[in-house]
Amino acid sequence: MLRLVNLTKTYRTGDRALTDVSLTVEPGQVVGLIGPSGAGKSTLIRCINRLVEPSSGQVFLGDTELTGLGRGALRRSRRRIGMIFQEYALVERLTVMENVLSGRLGYVGFWRSFFRRFPPDAVSTAYRLLDRVGLSDHVDKRADALSGGQRQRVGIARALAQDPDLLLIDEPTASLDPKTSRQIMRLIVEICDESGLPAIINIHDVALAQQFVRRIIGLQAGRVVFDGPPDQLDETVLTTIYGEEDWSATIRTAHDDDAVDPTEQAEGHDERETPAEILDRERMAGLS
């Protein structure tokens, strides 16, 4: 179970990304997080595993308060949280297997990982996961040799290799075509159902969110403005979240699997916007 209490994030530039966000995700629940670019969706999920340090508020995963942990304890807690990224964030020059095994880095010592001598159970888990996501034939290929959909499957396998208690998923389909997007979303939801894994999915495509998740949270300017089942998402709610617009097409596509709203597609590309540079630097701060 994941619990956020009054989570607030203000960047050093003074940009307020999150204001008093409180929410609870039950075990096995898959939550879709929607909202306009810059609403704080990326910041929210990065505050959970503290790739971005929250300014105030608390994050609980089970009984552990993640916000109070020191470096070592944070590292051990991060092993329990799998993360899947928009542009896949695979290490391009490593093989598929190395990328999946990197999900086990938190569990093995430096020299073992340096010589790529992972324990037998980690290796067999990696093979099993690659089989599950349908990439058994690509184990020793370099990640940059794969197509977009295949890369995202490697990203999913890497997150699952951690044997996580929670999945954080940042725009998993923004760089994918409509068909692949649906396949990837279906795969994610299936896997979560199989193992009762809770997940938060940042997503731009409202129709896709309605199709695949059972709970949707709407974020607007860093505040939660909607929290409910997908069928409650009507024109009024969408206007609250995104602002005034003709929503009839967006809502209709929710019931039509093949049609895709072109504006939704276009929006996917300018996702990393406003304080991207600061965000980048804060992300890298995890290193030093």
Binding site: N49, L51, R75, R76, S77, R78, R79, I81, M83, F85, E87, A89, L90, V91, E92, R93, L94, E98, S102, G103, R104, L105, G106, Y107, F110, S113, F114, G155, R158, Q162, L168, D280, R283, M284, G286, L287, S288
Partner: peptide
Amino acid sequence: IDASQVEAVTATGASSAQVIDYAIVPQ
């Protein structure tokens, strides 16, 4: 280097040395 690859490896709970080995060195 591409920061997102570093972010991804950091998010797995890897140590700083492992992040350098897996996310920075290959790049």
